[in-house]
């Protein structure tokens, strides 16, 4: 049974960066891209994000599928833009004129979201999730929040396995998922049982943690220090974001 959470890809060059640099880089990139308005700058941003994806050795096919899934969702929201924003009509659909302004705007939004999405998957999606939790703690997020994050990451796999076991048992008894009241109720009962098991599990975890003197925080033992690679990466990124800003204004 494989893990639902992808493990960090250790072989990529990005893996040698301090996780904190990767978190900061992802947010800085998102801030830079979200406030860009020109097609040229955003095309450059997409190229940067694609470069990061290559550096991170993201699997091309499944990454493309993710990007397309998010864009498919956006199309629903953006489809109306060409018809509501006016501007020079470019084509007509069922008698409605699609304006150039709206098409331009929709294109910009698609570029923005794709660039940030790709950069996020490259910089953060390939991190080991506990490492991300530690980075968030060192960046000053509340101790209790980080403890919740780390605990959750730990139990996702455990519960997913439990879910697969119950689902297999249902299949063995002839259950097929269909769009029916019976199916939805049966899955409700499945998760009800899973919930009961989880609550009992959490009582055992609580007892085991108390016996070890748990006080609500996980102590961070790994001492990361940003190295030369991190400063170099930061410098390259700052330069790229400046270039992005110049392209946008120009």
């Amino acid at each position: 049974m494989s893990s639902v959470l992808p493990l960090g890809i250790t072989l990529s060059p990005l893996a040698r960066l301090d996780p904190r640099s990767r978190v900061l880089a992802a947010f800085a990139f998102a801030v830079g891209v979200v406030w860009c308005q020109s097609v040229a700058a955003l095309t450059f941003a997409c190229a940067l994000a694609a470069g990061l994806a290559v550096l991170a050795r993201l699997p091309p096919l499944s990454t493309l599928r993710r990007v397309l899934a998010v864009e498919g969702f956006m199309l629903l929201t953006l489809a109306s833009l060409p018809f509501t924003m006016g501007g020079e009509p470019v084509f007509t659909l069922l008698g409605f004129a699609a304006g150039g302004d709206g098409l331009h705007r929709a294109g910009i939004l698609l570029l923005k979201s794709s660039a940030v999405l790709l950069a996020t998957l490259a910089l953060l999606g390939t991190l080991d999730m506990p490492a991300l939790g530690h980075a968030l703690a060192r960046l000053g997020l509340p101790v209790r929040f980080v403890a919740l994050f780390l605990f959750t990451v730990r139990y996702i796999d455990v519960l997913h396995r439990e879910y697969a076991r119950l689902r297999l048992a249902m299949r063995a008894r002839g259950f097929r998922p269909r769009a029916s009241l019976h199916c939805w109720r049966s899955l409700g009962h499945l998760f009800g049982m899973l919930l009961v098991g989880s609550l009992e599990r959490s009582e055992r975890i609580d007892a085991a943690m108390r016996c070890r003197g748990f006080d609500g925080r996980f102590h961070l033992l790994d001492e990361h220090r940003p190295g030369r690679l991190d400063w170099g990466f930061g410098a390259v990124q700052t330069a790229s974001l400046l270039l992005l800003a110049v392209l946008d204004v120009w």
């Binding site: 919740l148 605990f151 199916c183 899973l194 009582e203 609580d206 006080d215």
Partner: peptide, 27 residues
């Protein structure tokens, strides 16, 4: 979210994540 409640909240949070991976057929 006291330390005593943390395991319960975390296990349920993990459960909700797992539930969000399950797709329900609708039409």
């Amino acid at each position: 979210l006291t330390p005593e409640r943390l395991p319960k909240v975390a296990v349920l949070s993990a459960l909700f994540f797992v539930a969000s991976l399950v797709h329900f057929p609708v039409g």
